[in-house]
Amino acid sequence: MDVSQRIVLHFPPRITNQSIVCRLAKDFDLSFNILKASVTPGEEGLMVMELSGDQRNYDKGIQYLTEVGVKIQSLSQDVVRNEARCTHCGACVNLCPSGAFSIDPETRNVLFDHNKCVGCGLCVKACPPRAMELYF
């Protein structure tokens, strides 16, 4: 069975000079699409990617990353809408490059689809009441 997940990888400074991500393809036959990366040797690195492949290989790949010291989180845990601040104006709807926001045509409520979010952060500063929060 195939899976595809959007995940956030945090690389501790001591391993940012090792080649890790390429082994996901070589050793575990997984494919990845890097959505965002900021990795500088000697500093903590960050990578947001969509990782896909066979479920068993996926689990092994994740286990490998964990063993080498990479901290992994699901992207949806890192991009959060502060429901108390969102006014449902909809300013985000046509800005989001991946179409993660939409308007319910009936209620005119602004909907946020985590699965479409690529974590670019464009909405964070453009949201007038600043309801979008990014934690990486």
Partner: peptide
């Protein structure tokens, strides 16, 4: 051209 509103129709309702 995709549109967006700065005025909340949801809250206006």
């Amino acid at each position: 051209v995709p549109t967006a509103s700065l005025s909340s129709y949801y809250k206006a309702q």
